[in-house]
């Protein structure tokens, strides 16, 4: 294997390591978000307040961006 090929392999492995780490982080962040909502009364209160405001305001209106 030439030094150029070794470098390419190293770069490829580095890229894959980053992608694997990103996927692991994503799964951890998802679990953390779910657990936090279950266990954090402040976050539940935040959602409850949002829910109340949504009920008061009714169905939201989508304003499409002007082209």
């Amino acid at each position: 294997m030439t030094s150029e090929e070794i470098k390419k392999n190293e770069r490829r492995e580095r890229s894959l390591a980053i992608a694997r780490r990103m996927m692991a982080n994503k799964k951890a962040a998802e679990q953390e978000a779910i657990d936090e909502y279950k266990n954090n009364p402040a976050k539940q209160a935040l959602v409850e307040e949002l829910r109340r405001k949504n009920e008061e305001a009714g169905t939201p209106i989508v304003r499409l961006p002007i082209p």
Partner: peptide, 17 residues
Amino acid sequence: GYRFRNDLTTPNVFVFE
């Protein structure tokens, strides 16, 4: 779209229902 909020004690986290 939907109304959303962020929690300033947890930066860069937003929620909506």
